[in-house]
Design a protein around this nucleic acid. Structure first.
Lengths: 230, 230
DNA sequence: AGAAAAGCGGAGTTGCACACTCCGGATGAG
DNA sequence: CTCATCCGGAGTGTGCAACTCCGCTTTTCT
């Protein structure tokens, strides 16, 4: 839960600098988890009990800091998908992945935003590239064993996770675990039963949907590209 | 679908003024439906082919305009709940309400925001006051007939609608009807079956969750209160 | 038609939040 | 004790959305 973010270790940092860097990383974890990437570097610095200048000394900008911090969490999600793929019973794999993914994302608003590609569509696509093949295989196997209905697609998994995240997003402060109430309802819907009235979307569609979506909500365009003001 | 927003009719508007007012209302409907209340009055004016000044001549600010426009849509949702309550089979009532509410909200991002209390918590609470008693009664009856499980609460209805709205929110541009795919999965979860692992939240909790939620996403505080800059 | 009232348009003003810089002063290393 | 390194936070730059102002146009009235 608390790991160090690897630094190039060119020249050993001065003692206070090292301490502050650690404070910043920890503060960023907490702040981004709670308020998402909309928090400013100033917020992170203040939460760490440091000045803004210090924050900018250690990280060129907010997104670099975020990238550094979320790299592990992303790897964890990928491992989760891998783990799910190695399970004997694909159904257990799917449910396990859903629960784990929802758990990770509901606990961390920033992670949610990263996975949804709110700030960096490219990064999201890379993550998608890593995860979706794993889920594809899992879903295929689950269909073969009859654990899930034939018309279930991999994108359904993603959509279900999103729905659970919504619940956590909205009710997280009031009832952090409420999303678990709706998990069984949703996974049950994947099992064989009545057919679904509308076909799933393709992975590409889901991607573009995710990347274009919040651009509108979280202030259009923003400066995903560099050149803040040169 | 196209109704006039009642004006006090103190002195009859000049011909061009009346026409422009209608244009503004229509433009606002379209713009708010597509982009939500984040759209500026400038946007609405431009979309109507008019100047900003004209917009401000007719409406003191964006929120007044929005209030005028969404009043009907809100009434429609309430009527939907009433209609659902009058149905003989409470199960049909519930499903009908879910579908109708989701349909209305997924078609109109602005309406969604209003119902979620993103911009005006008070207004949302009023709406909640009008709807939740109706749904309470409906759910009670549905439980009595065994159509839904005993541990289902009225707040579950609201949460389900939210989840469907999320799907529409994200995938609306790519596949406007995709949310319907997940409707049966969710309503099916309300039927008798395995128990849910987590208890529902109270209506009050849901309210506060909704009002506090997006304040953070859509720029904290903003100027829900008047005094923009006096 | 002609004048006055009503309305229009959109450049410009104000407020605000965030990203990022800068440099005098503090702190740690040798 | 000295100096390189680092800290802090006031200050600068930028962008955006809300809203105003006033010269000009259109309608209405007689």
């Amino acid at each position: 839960m608390t790991t160090k973010v690897d630094e190039p270790a060119s020249r050993p940092l001065r003692k206070d600098a090292a301490r502050n860097r650690a404070l910043l990383v920890q503060a960023a974890r907490e702040v981004f988890a709670e308020r998402g990437l909309e928090a400013s570097l100033d917020d992170v610095a203040r939460h760490a009990g440091l000045g803004v200048g210090t924050a900018y000394r250690h990280f060129p900008n907010k997104h670099e800091l975020a990238k550094a911090i979320f790299a592990e969490a992303i790897d964890d999600i990928v491992s989760l998908a891998e783990l799910a793929g190695t399970m004997d019973d694909p159904w257990n794999g799917i449910v396990g992945f859903l629960e784990g993914a929802a758990e990770a994302q509901t606990a961390d608003r920033g992670l949610r935003e990263v996975l949804m590609g709110v700030h960096d569509p490219e990064q999201m696509e890379q993550i998608n590239d890593r995860i979706s093949p794993l889920l594809d295989e899992l879903v295929t196997r689950a269909k073969a064993t009859g654990a899930v209905r034939a018309d279930v697609e991999t994108t359904d998994i993603g959509v279900v996770v999103m729905m659970l995240c919504t619940v956590a997003d909205i009710t997280g402060d009031v009832a952090p675990d409420l999303w678990r109430r709706y998990l069984p309802m949703l996974v049950n819907g994947l099992r064989p039963g009545a057919d679904l009235p509308v076909p799933p979307i393709s992975n590409d569609q889901l991607r573009t949907a995710m990347t274009t979506h919040k651009q509108r909500l979280i202030r259009a365009g923003q400066n995903a590209a560099p050149s803040p003001h040169d």
